[in-house]
């Protein structure tokens, strides 16, 4: 996702324009309200997408997203620039989601992972929607994926979203979550396997109908 903001182009995706981002970061450090607004424009939907899937309640997710940006604005002076702004924002978002989960102390319908580790084959899908080059996925399938993600534990869910959805590298996720890189990979593998299992069940039901 790329956004054009004024004369500068700020990317929130893979092709991050580092020079313009650095300039904006520098302005944000000086508490430039306008520059911070540009950062919010660039990342608000991505951060919200992550938080939305982490907490499942839309209103609460919006509040947490707001909190992410407020905290970022207040503590921009402490941002050392060792990681990208995107990683930093996701780190704040992740910490807030974990804090919230600890407060609630809930265990969201974690499903059994029995057998999922053995799944390693590709889908044999009759449906054209499964083609990797297909960008649009219909709302029904999105809902199924969202349910599958919500049924995972926070450990698996956060790694899956940060790596596969937000495209963060293993090392940064490991640092963020506080586990070794190997554990991140194991969690990612299990999360994907769980999602595969869930989708297979859904497709089998569809075909049966």
């Amino acid at each position: 996702m790329e956004l054009c903001i004024g004369a500068t182009r700020l990317s929130a995706g893979k092709q991050t324009d580092h020079a313009s981002e650095l300039a904006i970061v520098e302005r944000c450090r000086k508490q430039d309200y306008e520059a911070f607004g540009k950062l919010v424009d660039a990342y608000q939907n991505r951060v919200f997408g992550f938080v939305r899937r982490m907490v499942s309640n839309a209103e609460e997710a919006a509040d947490i997203t707001q909190d992410v940006f407020i905290r970022a604005f207040q503590s921009f002076g402490r941002f050392d620039g060792r990681c990208s702004v995107r990683t930093w924002l996701f780190r704040i978002a992740y910490n807030l989601c974990i804090d919230r989960a600890r407060k609630i102390d809930r265990s969201p319908g974690e499903v059994s992972l029995q057998g999922t580790a053995e799944i390693d084959e590709t889908f044999d899908l009759p449906d054209g929607r499964w083609q990797p080059d297909q960008i649009a996925i219909d709302s029904e399938l999105c809902a199924v994926i969202d349910v599958a993600i919500a049924s995972m534990s926070e450990k698996l869910r956060s790694v899956l979203l940060l790596h596969d959805k937000e495209d963060l590298p293993y090392e940064e996720i490991a640092q963020m979550v506080g586990v070794p890189v190997g554990t991140v990979k194991s969690r990612l593998f299990l999360a994907r396997a769980h999602l595969q299992q869930h989708l297979r069940n859904y497709l089998n039901t569809e075909v049966a109908q």
Binding site: V40, Q44, N45, Q66, W130, P132, I137, K165, R192
Partner: peptide, 29 residues
């Protein structure tokens, strides 16, 4: 199989935030 899951997740649409959310954030900031 694992890469397929990744591709699917990346293709998932993003939910946009409302303008009222943004104006509220602006007020707080």
């Amino acid at each position: 199989g694992q890469q397929q899951v990744r591709t699917m997740l990346q293709a998932m649409p993003e939910e946009p935030l409302s303008l009222s959310w943004r104006s509220e954030l602006n007020q707080v900031l």
